[in-house]
């Protein structure tokens, strides 16, 4: 399998794109997820409808189709041209945000109403309550489901191949086409994904154990 090492430069670049796109999608998804969860829990009727249509669209259709829409359809409708990386990042953020909204909503609702009233009785304003009572708990509670989102988004970045982004799977396709040795190439690339995801899970687990607070877990709160 040494022939693969000749392509290590390619592979490293592809891996870099895969990881970066995952992190970009997750980061954008956190912002969108928190905002839409807050809107869905505390917002007005119209806002709830808008948020839930957004979530329904991105959770109900395939990422591949969403990527094609953002790469081909949206520029055609708006006349704004953007490159594949922009279209890909936007799609990943919106897609992940739709899933993360569900996790954050569950976590926000798990911060029981009695604590909100207790905060009010101390004279705390709503923003103060959000910042000091709701979010610190919700962010901790959300880590385990959020870990799943990290894994599933990380693996779905392979869909970026449909708009031509040179991520890890796309690199594998090229190497396999050049070397005519698909079996080794895909096994090797699969191994890279596997090691990356396994290590990431270990790190996230470590983080969770670091910030964990007795009695504040999904199973006990929700």
């Amino acid at each position: 399998m040494y022939f693969i090492l000749e392509y290590s430069q390619f592979i490293i670049e592809g891996f870099y794109v895969t990881v970066t796109m995952t992190l970009v999608g997750l980061a954008g998804g956190v912002v969108l997820g928190v905002l839409s969860a807050l809107g869905d829990v505390y917002g007005g009727k119209l806002l709830k409808i808008i948020i839930n249509s957004y979530v329904e669209f991105f959770r109900g259709s395939p990422l591949i189709v969403q990527l094609l829409i953002f790469y081909y359809s949206i520029p055609a409708i708006t006349g704004v041209k953007w490159d594949a990386l922009t279209a890909g990042s936007l799609t990943l953020m919106l897609n992940s945000g739709a899933y993360q909204k569900g996790y954050f909503k569950g976590a926000i609702e798990a911060v029981f109403k009695d604590q909100l009233i207790a905060a009010k009785s101390l004279g705390m304003t709503f923003p103060q309550t959000l910042r000091h009572v709701v979010l610190p708990q919700a962010l901790r509670i959300v880590i385990p489901p959020w870990t799943n989102e990290y894994v599933s988004l990380g693996l779905s970045t392979s869909a970026l191949i449909v708009i031509g982004i040179r991520e890890l799977t796309n690199v594998a396709v090229s190497i396999s086409a050049q070397t005519f040795r698909p079996l080794e190439v895909y096994l090797f690339i699969g191994l890279i994904y596997f090691v990356w995801i396994t290590l990431s899970l270990k790190v996230l687990d470590w983080v969770y154990n670091k910030v964990k607070i007795p009695g504040l877990a999904v199973s006990e709160v929700m």
């Binding site: 392979s158 799977t169 079996l183 995801i197």
Partner: peptide, 12 residues
């Protein structure tokens, strides 16, 4: 199957 994209399996 939790750590490798399903697309990679299809290609494999």
């Amino acid at each position: 199957f939790r750590g490798i994209p399903v697309l990679v399996f299809m290609l494999l």
